[in-house]
Amino acid sequence: MGTYILKRLLAAIPILIGISALVFFSLKLVPGDPLSAITGDAVIGKEEADRLREQYGLNDALHVQYLSFVGRAIQGDLGRSLQFKRPVIDEIRAQLPATLQLTAAAMVVALTVGLGLGILAAIRPHSLLDGLTMSIAMAGVSFPSFWVGLMLLLIFSLALGWLPATGTEGFERLIMPAATLGFGAAAIIARLTRSSLLEVLQQQYIVTARAKGLSFVKVVFRHALRNALIPVVTIVGLQFGNLLAGAVVIETVFSRQGIGRLLVTAILGRDFPLVQGVILFVASVYVIVNLLVDLSYALIDPRIRYA
């Protein structure tokens, strides 16, 4: 197991180097002047602009810029944000807790709602209940999250005044963003749980368990669900990545702190060091989550072993 983990982590290094190169050079292909990160919306003279480009090293040849970035990144230095004039790592550190909080809360929503709806639908297939829950799931898949977010804002902040519309502090500011973000993932989990559970419920050991006189609830939760969860866990792992990506939109809609909003600001401002840093960070998280998902199979299904 230890060797397996080590191998996987080593394999991540070329992936991360590849990602950094891809991001770096594709950013250079994107039109737009990185000087915008420094000057924002100000109209400044060309002499000043030239001076600033020189001072911030924006005139250096591409490969020089990239190599100096890699050189520093290896030593754990992601450089300084052009826009915010402080270390990229500090920017990420400042935004990380809020994104983790949002992602975790959305995951709770996704799992509770998703598994709940999926199980409900599976135990009474083709019933009214099934139709209803799967319609909700369909809505969750098809409604774009920014729209759901705006609708929630409209209802719970503007019309009812129950929840604050913006900000990060406190549980009440987490409810709507987490619900919005979790809803989409819940829908996918619900649909998958339903089909996976339906399949398992057809298995002979389920019939045996029922024949032995175990209650339906016990059979579903103790025997069927555990076996039905393997594909669900995979998708939950992938959903975690989607939630991180979704946070980009949700954090912007609700003006929450977070990595996603940081990334949007960085891209719009052509703050290259910051974009690089955030993407490398998110890529590392993906790599680690994928590893954790693979490892979790062994926990759920003792027949799976890693060497």
Partner: peptide, 16 residues
């Protein structure tokens, strides 16, 4: 700083 117009308006109109 609220860049999203809709969110900024909602926060203003809800008295936040």
């Amino acid at each position: 700083g609220i860049s999203e117009n809709g969110a900024r308006l909602t926060a203003f109109e809800s008295g936040e």
